[in-house]
């Protein structure tokens, strides 16, 4: 078995692979990612960088001149009361919608889940989820009708409960809450489904063990369900915060039309997204709008990071 190498290959020199042979496989890879890569670069990462640039310039889309103005755009912005108003509105919107949505979603998930003696509420789950897939403008139409102070269903319900009628979208105090109600209606199904998926991953024996130990109701939830569901809760809170902070379509649609320009009455529903839109595309102050966008960008990123930090300390990961 020693002489196993025949003479005709013994003298061969080692061969270097040709360049194209070495790069053949990677090139195929690059070719395949290219179609999505350029879309991401051109339409997403590019604008993100460009945003940084135009926020510090005085700049107009109709002129080719632009000049560096440093923080000037931000200084102007900070002197606009409407800017602070929009931040306040946005904060109010997020602080009200996110906790309510999260709590309702947990409650609905518990109501619809499969439990001892109960089948999973599949039909109900589908119907609760349904609003989430509907187009915002189309369903806003019916909600404008529901919120109609004269013949809308909202006041009918209030009347049945012996509560005073409201002006809803026409009221400075109730316009934003009306939008909140729509937003919760439209998005709650998504979060409920996320919680349901989380609850479904809890092994049956964990729940059964808890029941054998005599835990019931609140205690089962607090001791058994919550630690297992808290990572999803964190995810839902982050997702809901980021989404609600950027709410645009329903505010535009619900508060536009009969109530004057969107954002009214009296700027009570002017949130950051809406203000950016109006500043840029109605009043064509692109520099100001970019400065606002940059602030929103930083806020959202900051929010995500803070939530991540909190979660790392308190959320129970399996």
């Amino acid at each position: 078995m020693n002489h196993i190498v025949p003479s005709h290959v013994e003298t061969l020199e080692p061969i270097k692979p040709k360049i194209w042979q070495r790069w053949r496989e990677p090139l195929v890879g690059y070719g395949l990612i290219l179609p999505s890569l350029w879309i991401f670069l051109v339409f997403y990462y590019g604008p993100a960088l460009f945003l940084l640039y135009i926020s510090f310039f005085h700049w107009s889309i109709f002129q080719n001149r632009s000049s560096f103005v440093g923080l000037h755009n931000f200084v102007i912005l900070f002197h606009q009361p409407i800017f602070w108003q929009s931040l306040l509105n946005t904060g109010y919107f997020v602080v009200a919608v996110v906790p309510v949505t999260t709590l309702l979603a947990i409650a609905l998930a518990l109501l619809l889940r499969e439990a001892a003696g109960l089948r999973k509420g599949k039909v109900a789950q589908t119907l609760v989820f349904l609003p989430h897939v509907t187009p915002v403008v189309a369903t806003s139409i019916i909600w404008v009708w529901i919120f109609n102070p004269n013949f809308g269903l909202a006041n009918v319900v209030l009347h049945l409960l012996h509560l005073p009628s409201l002006l809803w979208l026409s009221s400075v105090h109730w316009a934003l809450p009306s939008v909140m109600i729509y937003t919760i209606w439209h998005s709650l199904g998504l979060y409920t489904v996320l919680f349901l998926a989380g609850l479904a991953t809890i092994p049956k024996h964990v729940l059964e063990a808890a029941q054998v130990d005599g835990a019931r109701g609140w205690l089962t939830f607090r001791r058994v369900l919550w630690p297992l569901v808290s990572p999803i809760t964190f995810f839902v809170i982050v997702l809901a915060s980021i989404t609600t902070m950027q709410t645009f379509s329903q505010i535009y649609t619900l508060t536009g039309g009969p109530h004057g320009g969107a954002g009214g009455p009296a700027f009570s529903t002017t949130t950051d997204s809406l203000l950016i839109y109006q500043t840029a595309f109605l009043y064509l102050h692109f520099s100001l709008a970019s400065a606002m966008s940059l602030i929103l960008f930083v806020l959202i990123l900051g929010l995500t990071l803070i939530q991540k930090l909190i979660a790392d300390r308190f959320v129970f990961y399996r």
């Binding site: 997403y44 945003l51 595309f281 970019s290 966008s293 990123l301």
Partner: peptide, 25 residues
Amino acid sequence: YFYAMLGVMMLPQQALLVPQYVLMY
């Protein structure tokens, strides 16, 4: 690229509209 493409989801869409508009222009 895997992380870069996941990162697109982190970009807040509302904050990008102005530069995107300029780009489209």
